[in-house]
């Protein structure tokens, strides 16, 4: 299993934090490492590669009701 550290940046970071905090599915398990005013760092346990993980994290949030409404950036930390 890989562990990737990812930085998520957003003005409305609370909504992304609410979604990703303790998030777990068949592909990834997320732990929020640090939450700041406009960004947060998460550690993702997964079998995916780094790039695949970033893409996957973006995709699952995009599918939520807030996914198209908020502006955010997700990248490897």
């Amino acid at each position: 299993m890989n562990q990737h550290k990812i930085r998520i940046m957003a003005g409305q970071i609370k909504f992304l934090h609410d979604f990703f905090n303790m998030y777990e599915d068949a592909q990834i398990k997320v732990n929020v490492e640090q939450l700041n005013k406009v960004d947060m760092y998460i550690v993702v346990e997964t079998a995916l590669t780094e790039d695949e993980t970033v893409r996957y994290v973006k995709e699952i949030f995009k599918k939520t009701p807030h996914g198209a409404a908020l502006s955010y950036a997700i990248q490897l930390a």
Binding site: G11, I13, A68, L70, S71
Partner: peptide, 11 residues
């Protein structure tokens, strides 16, 4: 909207 973290152009 953008400056408050909401995707203005989409909205």
């Amino acid at each position: 909207l953008w400056i408050f973290g909401i995707h203005g152009p989409n909205t």
